[in-house]
Computed example of a mutant assay.
Amino acid sequence: MPLDESQPLMTMLEEFGIASATVEHPSLRTIDDSRRLRGDLPGAHAKSLFLKDRRGGYWLLVALEQTRIDLRVAASVLQAPRFSFASMDELSRLLGVVPGAVSPFAAVNDVHGRVCVVIEQRVLASELINCHPLRNDRTTTIATLDLVRFLEQIGHPPRIIDLSGLTESA
């Protein structure tokens, strides 16, 4: 059964020795909502795109929220066939979250290893990163390197890619 509440996730982080801080806020569905309603949190803010390639492969691409990503370029860099956004059913079935709550933490629910987690390298330049903890009415701040360690611990070591110069920043 997938984790669908943030408390089991917080317990897991604690068991891994990973410090985090979580704040509650109104539900956020878009980056604009997030900027308006999240308050003043330290660190960078991530956005996560749940993608499907035309051969049925799944990808969770994590970038800084201001990064505009050209899906054709990202697919080319990852040597994947053409990307599209995965459906809400696939999002629920594979990552156990709803639209607006997608984050790298959701990889914990991919128990069959079908999703490849990808982090754009500019995320790693931030000491702290903010992500939704499986729901979009909370934001969790975690050290960026601890996020990578968490992903490794759950069997989803991320691929790190460089999209700088190939994407636009907002």
Rank of each mutant, 00 (worst) to 15 (best):
D70N: 14
Q79R: 15
A74Q: 11
A107Y: 00
L49P: 02
V148Y: 04
E90W: 06
G57I: 13
L94Q: 04
R82W: 07
K47G: 01
R72E: 14
L61G: 13
L95D: 09
L95Y: 06
G43R: 11
G96F: 03
T139H: 08
R114Y: 09
N130R: 10
L51E: 10
F83V: 09
D53Q: 03
L95P: 12
P158W: 00
T141M: 09
A107C: 05
F83P: 10
V148E: 00
A80R: 13
V115K: 01
L49W: 02
C116L: 13
N130I: 09
L78P: 02
S76E: 15
R159D: 01
H132Y: 12
G96W: 10
L61C: 15
V118D: 01
W59L: 04
V77I: 15
D53H: 03
S103H: 01
P42L: 09
Q153P: 06
L37F: 12
P104S: 00
E120V: 12
S92M: 13
Q79M: 15
M88R: 13
H132T: 00
R122I: 05
A63E: 13
L71C: 05
E90H: 03
I161L: 11
V97L: 10
A125D: 15
R55D: 14
I119G: 06
L163F: 12
A86W: 14
R122A: 15
Q121R: 15
Q79G: 11
P99A: 02
G57W: 07
D40G: 08
L124W: 03
T67P: 07
D137Q: 07
D40I: 08
Q153M: 08
M88P: 07
E152H: 12
R72L: 05
V111Q: 03
A106E: 02
V111C: 05
D40E: 14
I119Y: 06
F50N: 02
S48I: 06
E152Q: 15
G113P: 05
R159C: 14
L128I: 15
S48T: 12
P81K: 04
R68L: 08
T67Y: 07
E90V: 10
E127A: 07
S48Q: 09
A80V: 05
L71W: 14
V97E: 01
H132L: 05
F50R: 05
R82G: 08
